[in-house]
Design a protein around this nucleic acid. Structure first.
Lengths: 198, 198
DNA sequence: CGAGTCGTTGAACGGAATCAATCGTCGTGG
DNA sequence: CCACGACGATTGATTCCGTTCAACGACTCG
């Protein structure tokens, strides 16, 4: 049960994939909810609007993230979902998922485990972001991500910027901080592998 | 099903409450896991240690937060849980919860809804924290928390500091920012109620 | 009444954001 | 096939805003 993914668990309910142009909407606030999604490429932003029309961004889903799980328990979507980049999303039928969960209680447990893991990782990320110093923030994040045995982590090629986004810092700051950590001897970088020394 | 809380859903599995002195451990990494918890008062920090002994804070649970849900699916705890303040936690028996979920599939669905809501709010908080400017960060958070109809939110008395913690900013900055927003006319404060104007 | 804490404001400093420029790589289309 | 554009990675210089340190009044609780 341990490391199954959202996509694997709900594979039977998968319907199709959708391509979205930048700025295109996957769904709008108030639409009847029929599906949940995972982002395969690009980025999709969930925006809620207050009565006065203020926009409140609830989430920006990146590749690998799931989207609109809460719609499982709601008749309508409570947000707009807008592609901030040209994007591809996988779709999963809400009705089929609910039926699956009801018919196969053990799948419900797996699903709970899935969510519990996600909560854990979100909380860990929040904890990272509560660290003020850029240096310590990066170091903490690296320790979090690194393989516990080898103390290495691989940077998904071409995406130090994505990492900067996760860390909520300017990408320039991340480059500089990594360079400093390396000259301090705290880490090593060859190609796309970062090794941490203690 | 909608707005039930963790405590309500799992009330039948509740065992006792534990008091912890500051610095006391609720459990240690590697202990067999028997319970999950919610924090009633104080604060409990989850810390994982790497092989080299580096500490990685995974989460700091505050009053209202649940704790160690992931232990439902693990034989042991993977973190130390240490009280950072004198604390009280409510305990829920893991075995009873699992049994409940297996026997009452509809409770599993409720539990999933519970987690989905939590994921949503964690993601919203992450989104808030990705806003650099203190002013916009506070404003975004207020819009997020305010009652959609009245555009008001009440500050749980004596806890602007707790709010500053959530926003990951120095509490002095929060005071100043609120003062500025008020003099800008964006918000009003009387007693413990903040009203947002658009 | 004193200790502790929250809320508030002031002043100064420091570090991260920002603006900017360069280099390398990759993909695309002429 | 090469020129061009786009984008990631990197480094420099400057600005600015949030942190930090500090002090004070108000309030609560023992």
């Amino acid at each position: 049960m341990q490391n199954i993914s959202f996509g694997e668990l709900f594979a039977p309910a998968r319907t199709s994939a959708k391509s979205l142009g930048q700025g295109e909407f996957l769904f709008r606030q108030g639409d009847p909810s029929s599906s949940l999604y995972t982002v395969l490429a690009g980025g999709v932003r969930l925006v809620r609007y207050t009565l006065e029309g203020n926009a409140v961004v609830m989430h920006t889903a990146r590749p690998g993230d799931s989207l609109a799980e809460a719609s499982l328990f709601s008749e309508i979507y409570h947000c707009d979902a807008e592609a901030v980049l040209p994007s591809i999303v996988a779709c999963y039928d809400k009705g089929k998922i609910l039926a699956m969960l009801r018919e196969h209680p053990e799948k419900s447990l797996t699903c709970i485990a899935l969510f519990a893991r996600q909560v854990r990782s979100l909380r860990a990320l929040l904890e990272v972001r509560s660290i003020r110093s850029a240096r310590d923030r990066v170091l903490h994040y690296l320790l979090l991500q690194a393989d516990p045995v080898t103390m290495e982590m691989s940077i998904p090629a071409g995406s130090l910027k994505a990492m900067a986004l996760k860390l909520a810092m300017a990408h320039e700051t991340l480059y500089r901080t990594l360079a400093n950590l390396e000259s301090e001897g705290k880490i090593n970088r060859n190609a796309s592998i970062i090794k941490i020394h203690h």
